[in-house]
């Protein structure tokens, strides 16, 4: 079974470009219904299928995502 991972998203830095959503092979991420202080909808985790591949974080222009993976 694939290793479990998790992401931490700094929602106040997110600009809602949605590139992370397209890059996630597990469809873990989606856009929020709320907006942050900048007025952008931000990325949120919608399930626990994350494998910690870090694709979302690599493609995030604003470096808002930190990725963890079980050892």
């Amino acid at each position: 079974m694939a290793k479990k991972g998790d992401v931490v998203i700094q929602i106040e830095k997110c600009k809602g470009c949605e590139l992370c959503i397209a890059s996630c092979p597990q469809n873990v991420l989606a856009m929020s219904d709320k907006v942050n202080a900048k007025g952008f909808r931000y990325a949120v985790k919608v399930n626990s299928d994350c494998t910690g591949c870090a694709n979302c974080a690599v493609v995030c222009p604003d470096a808002v995502i930190t990725v963890y993976r079980e050892k």
Partner: peptide, 26 residues
């Protein structure tokens, strides 16, 4: 899983904490 020993990817240390001014998705 959110523990320092599980960290696999974070923002580069050669970048400052400042928020980038670029447009979304740039």
């Amino acid at each position: 899983l959110i523990k320092p020993e599980n960290l696999v990817y974070e923002k580069s240390k050669s970048m400052t904490e400042r928020e980038l001014h670029y447009c979304p998705g740039c």
